[in-house]
């Protein structure tokens, strides 16, 4: 049975934004650190490292999850998506991102990646999500700047555009 010892680095292989990546890290490294400092995807932010703030939210196998609560050793075989994958091409924002821009859904932007990953997953799973469902999902992401209302508006606008088939 595979036992990865405590003191060495081990190879962990997973997919990030559609590309297979292998990193050599200690078991204990947090996925948030792997993404940011081993792979260089610094769009995923770290605000608490205890699962409450949501800044580190990424999608794991399609569902939004805390990157700070995943150990590198657990990441083997995961399919991970981060904020860097949201825009289809450089220079063009996704519908959701554009809605945030239009509705001033961000100020400092530190919480934004996590919020986008939560909403992106939600709108993919529930294209007709009600405002209540959207708020419930957002309650797992803290924002200290905006007072949330602009974020909710952006989310509703994105939902409506996507429903109309925008992309």
């Amino acid at each position: 049975m595979p036992v990865l010892n405590a003191t060495s680095r081990h190879e962990v292989t997973f997919r990030v934004n559609g590309t297979e990546r292998t990193v050599r890290v200690e078991n204990r490294m947090l996925l948030s650190d792997v993404l940011r400092h081993e792979i260089g995807l610094t769009g995923t932010h770290v605000g608490c490292e205890h699962g409450v703030c949501g800044a580190c939210t990424v999608q794991i196998d399609g569902a939004p999850a805390r990157a700070c609560l995943v150990l590198a050793a657990q990441a083997e075989g995961m399919n991970i998506r981060t904020v860097e994958a949201l825009a289809a091409e450089t220079g063009r924002l996704s519908v959701l991102q554009q809605a945030f821009r239009d509705h001033h859904g961000l100020q400092c932007g530190f919480c934004t990646s996590g919020i986008l990953m939560t909403l992106d997953a939600l709108l993919a799973a529930e294209p007709d999500a009600s405002e209540g469902v959207i708020r419930d999902a957002l309650s797992g992401n803290l924002c200290r700047c905006t007072g949330y209302e602009p974020i909710v508006r952006a989310a509703l606008a994105a939902r409506d555009t996507l429903r109309k088939g925008g992309n």
Binding site: M1, P2, V3, L4, N5, E26, R28, L71
Partner: peptide
Amino acid sequence: PARFSFVR
């Protein structure tokens, strides 16, 4: 975290 071995 402190170091630990990991059984998969």
